[in-house]
Write a protein that binds this DNA or RNA. Structure first.
Length: 490
DNA sequence: ATGTGC
């Protein structure tokens, strides 16, 4: 036996453990489950069983269900692709390092043929807009506070400062009338008290650029111009105004330095709340007691920040497009985080670490997606296809789906590839990076090259089997395959 | 994942 899971159907396996709650792995056929990941999860679940403070509480703290997505693999702490539904307890550790990291997708009025003659020039423009000191996204302290408190509300309601450049207003103007319904949780999670001690708020007033907003971030984050390679569900594609050959903008980014600090605070607060369990910091949620509120304020502020940043990144890509193709329109299709904790509508708390929300028709009532299911954006590896699916709200999967292909080789292994081959890949696949930014220090450049190599396509599994498993298990239905034209890697 | 650089 290569792993401790027991197969219960074509795609579903159960993990034996001491807890009285179902644990379901949606396994990808022919792809072996990483034993190390299964072991980490078992350790985590055993730990919950033995956490003495979880027992005898009123209301009781317990785990209702665990779902593991088809790209389930080893990660820091519990594995990537883990979804937990808890009651009376939060696990800030169980959502990944990058709080509210997620995906956004915007349609454009362009076709691949429109864009093709401009690709060389666009590479230079994107390099300038994203890296060469021309981000030109300025913020005031009041705007930054509004972003944290209100997320997308800051874009809609907050006034512009005289002297601020056009990008901030471009972000606002690019939002469709129903924008709030096109962001998970309305793009605005509740923050009772803005965590004022987080660095981003205290940064000096810049009139030229913000230190964080407008940054892509590192690792697997990117902004990509793609085209619709093929439609897999014409009806849903029509609903979503997607056509074959159409150019779209995909954004994968998180909460940057702000969220990093917010996550640290959340962990520290959780450890202080339950010092008996300093490793898997558990945070009790007491009825009528606000013990968890500062933690959720910090996490929610990070989610608001991340959603706004993804909108900013898309607007920067749109700006670059319109420099070459004036009059180009872009429109937000959907945006959702894949590392987060939300209160579940049915009670308790839903934790997703590297798993994307995939609610079905019932869960999307009152939104533009009531008849299609929630858009599920699954990015491929660098140079490869990404997929757009429609959520089906599978209860066993806790209305979740995979968030990517899943890593195949360790970061260390990926870094051992040849530099020359990697540079050739970046050139052939039109990957724009900060590597050739002349003003950057050589040691920083060398480090950046090592980081980028960790994201080389051969480091990731093929996305095809993951998408097939999502479809066959009933987690999400494929709508379109998207292929890259130009990629901006942070 | 974060920061670096401006």
């Amino acid at each position: 036996m290569s792993h401790p899971f027991r197969r219960v159907s074509a795609t579903q396996l159960t993990l034996p453990h001491a807890l009285d709650c179902p644990v379901t792995l949606f396994a990808t056929p022919d792809v072996p489950v990483q034993r190390a990941a299964a072991q980490e999860l078992t350790t985590f679940l055993d730990r919950l069983t033995h956490l003495p403070t979880l027992q005898g509480r009123t209301p009781p703290a317990r785990l209702h269900r665990v779902a593991l997505t088809p790209d389930f693999h080893k990660g820091a702490g519990i594995p990537v692709g883990t979804v937990l539904h808890t009651e009376g307890v939060l696990f800030p550790e169980a959502i990944g390092n990058d709080v509210a990291c997620g995906m956004g997708l915007h349609t454009t009025t362009l076709t691949r043929d429109d864009l093709e003659p401009h690709l060389d020039a666009l590479e230079d423009t994107l390099r300038r807009v994203f890296f060469q000191g021309q981000r030109r996204l300025s913020t005031t302290g009041k705007q930054r506070e509004a972003v944290l408190r209100s997320g997308i509300g800051a874009l809609v309601d907050s006034p512009l400062h005289p002297g601020q450049s056009g990008l901030w207003s471009r972000v606002r103007d690019s939002l469709p009338a129903d924008a709030r319904q096109r962001l998970h949780a309305g793009g605005q999670l509740p923050v009772l008290s803005v965590p004022a001690h987080l660095d981003w708020l205290r940064e000096p007033h810049h009139l030229t650029h913000d230190a964080q907003l407008g940054s892509v971030g590192g690792g697997n984050h990117f902004v990509e111009l793609q085209y619709v390679h093929r439609l897999l569900d014409r009806g849903t594609a029509h609903h979503w105004h997607l056509k074959a050959g159409q150019v779209v903008v995909m954004v994968h980014s998180g909460s940057l330095g702000f969220g990093h600090l917010a996550a640290q605070q959340a962990r520290t607060a959780a450890q202080a709340a339950l010092p008996e369990d300093p490793v898997w910091a558990a945070l009790p949620v007491r009825d009528g007691g606000p013990a968890h509120q500062p933690v959720m304020d910090a996490l929610n502020a990070a989610a608001n920040f991340a959603a706004v940043n993804r909108l900013c990144l898309a607007a920067m890509a749109a700006q670059a497009l319109s420099e070459h193709l004036p009059g180009t329109g872009t429109s937000l299709l959907y945006d959702a985080p894949h590392n987060f904790i939300w209160p579940d509508p049915a009670g308790g708390w839903l934790h997703r670490k590297g798993a994307t929300p995939a609610r079905g028709f019932a869960g999307m009532q009152g939104t533009p997606f009531a008849f299609t299911g929630e858009p599920v954006i699954v990015p491929g590896s660098m140079g490869g296809s990404s997929f757009l699916l429609a959520g089906r709200g599978l209860p066993e999967a806790l209305s979740s789906a995979s968030h990517g292909a899943g890593r195949l080789r360790s970061r260390g292994e990926a870094m051992r590839g040849h530099d020359d081959e990697f540079h050739a890949f970046l050139r052939d696949f039109r990957v724009v990076t900060p590597l050739d930014w002349r003003r950057a220090r050589p040691d920083i450049q060398a480090q950046k090259l090592r980081e980028l190599k960790q994201e080389a396509p051969f480091a990731y599994k093929g996305i095809g089997p993951v998408i097939r498993t999502l479809a066959e298990s009933g987690m999400a239905a494929p709508v379109a395959e998207l292929r890259p034209l130009i990629t901006v890697k942070g």
